[in-house]
Amino acid sequence: MQIFVKGLTGKTTTLEVEPSDTIENVKAKIQDKTGLPPDQQRLIFAGKQLEDGRTLSDYNIQKESTLHIVWR
């Protein structure tokens, strides 16, 4: 499925993911596209910070959802 990651600059990155992907895995995909290391990424969805060990489905993140990224 496709999801979007929007940064503070307003730039949006598209990712191809599975609902079973962990947040850690998603951060690795973001690094592949942007070069930003996972330890500098904070992902937010529906006002919650996403924890590395959880999956996208744990947070009810579905296709075409938009996550927000904040740099540490």
Results as ranks from 00 to 15, higher is better:
67 L>T: 01
2 Q>Y: 13
54 R>V: 05
40 Q>M: 12
32 D>H: 14
11 K>C: 07
62 Q>N: 09
46 A>M: 13
12 T>L: 13
40 Q>W: 11
28 A>D: 06
72 R>L: 15
18 E>K: 12
34 T>D: 04
14 T>Y: 08
41 Q>I: 15
3 I>A: 01
18 E>D: 10
56 L>E: 00
10 G>H: 09
37 P>N: 10
12 T>N: 05
27 K>V: 02
12 T>W: 10
60 N>S: 08
70 V>W: 10
27 K>D: 00
30 I>P: 00
10 G>D: 10
29 K>Q: 09
7 G>T: 14
58 D>P: 00
23 I>H: 01
20 S>M: 09
11 K>Y: 14
10 G>W: 06
72 R>C: 08
16 E>T: 14
26 V>L: 15
23 I>T: 04
42 R>Y: 13
38 P>D: 04
60 N>V: 04
10 G>I: 14
32 D>F: 10
49 Q>S: 10
66 T>N: 04
1 M>C: 03
60 N>L: 07
54 R>H: 13
51 E>Y: 06
28 A>W: 14
53 G>C: 05
19 P>W: 06
53 G>T: 10
3 I>M: 03
48 K>A: 13
20 S>I: 06
37 P>L: 09
6 K>L: 14
58 D>F: 14
56 L>T: 02
60 N>W: 04
43 L>H: 01
67 L>I: 15
39 D>I: 08
54 R>D: 04
66 T>V: 14
9 T>K: 13
11 K>W: 15
44 I>N: 06
65 S>W: 03
49 Q>A: 11
68 H>Y: 11
3 I>F: 01
30 I>V: 05
70 V>N: 07
37 P>Q: 09
21 D>Y: 07
51 E>L: 09
63 K>S: 14
64 E>A: 09
13 T>E: 12
48 K>P: 01
35 G>R: 05
25 N>D: 12
2 Q>I: 15
64 E>M: 11
41 Q>F: 15
31 Q>I: 03
17 V>A: 04
28 A>E: 10
29 K>G: 03
50 L>E: 00
47 G>M: 04
42 R>A: 11
25 N>A: 12
46 A>T: 05
68 H>V: 11
40 Q>T: 07
29 K>N: 04
43 L>Y: 02
18 E>N: 12
68 H>F: 12
71 W>H: 11
42 R>Q: 14
2 Q>L: 13
55 T>H: 05
46 A>I: 06
38 P>E: 07
49 Q>H: 11
4 F>R: 05
63 K>H: 15
40 Q>I: 08
72 R>Y: 14
5 V>S: 02
39 D>H: 11
15 L>T: 01
65 S>G: 06
19 P>M: 08
39 D>W: 11
71 W>I: 15
19 P>D: 07
14 T>F: 09
22 T>V: 04
37 P>K: 11
68 H>I: 15
40 Q>V: 08
39 D>R: 11
46 A>G: 11
31 Q>C: 07
37 P>V: 08
31 Q>N: 07
48 K>M: 13
15 L>Y: 08
14 T>N: 07
63 K>V: 07
28 A>C: 06
65 S>P: 01
5 V>Y: 03
43 L>T: 01
3 I>T: 01
46 A>C: 06
37 P>W: 10
20 S>P: 02
26 V>W: 00
9 T>V: 09
7 G>Y: 14
39 D>G: 10
26 V>F: 03
31 Q>R: 12
17 V>P: 00
49 Q>K: 09
28 A>H: 13
71 W>P: 11
50 L>H: 00
50 L>F: 01
66 T>R: 04
16 E>Q: 13
44 I>R: 05
2 Q>P: 07
24 E>R: 12
34 T>V: 09
2 Q>D: 05
25 N>Y: 11
40 Q>E: 10
30 I>H: 03
11 K>L: 14
37 P>D: 09
55 T>F: 06
28 A>L: 15
35 G>T: 03
39 D>M: 08
32 D>M: 12
6 K>N: 07
47 G>D: 06
43 L>F: 03
61 I>P: 01
58 D>R: 02
48 K>V: 15
41 Q>S: 08
7 G>P: 07
55 T>L: 07
14 T>C: 06
16 E>W: 15
57 S>M: 10
53 G>H: 13
12 T>D: 07
31 Q>E: 08
26 V>N: 01
51 E>M: 09
47 G>C: 04
13 T>I: 14
45 F>P: 00
14 T>I: 15
28 A>M: 14
7 G>M: 12
6 K>P: 02
1 M>W: 08
34 T>S: 06
23 I>D: 00
19 P>Y: 07
14 T>D: 05
13 T>M: 13
4 F>D: 02
72 R>G: 12
36 L>Y: 09
17 V>E: 00
31 Q>A: 14
24 E>A: 13
69 I>C: 05
33 K>G: 05
62 Q>T: 13
15 L>R: 00
43 L>V: 05
11 K>E: 15
33 K>Q: 11
45 F>M: 04
62 Q>Y: 10
6 K>S: 08
7 G>A: 10
60 N>M: 08
63 K>L: 06
27 K>I: 04
68 H>P: 01
25 N>E: 15
41 Q>G: 06
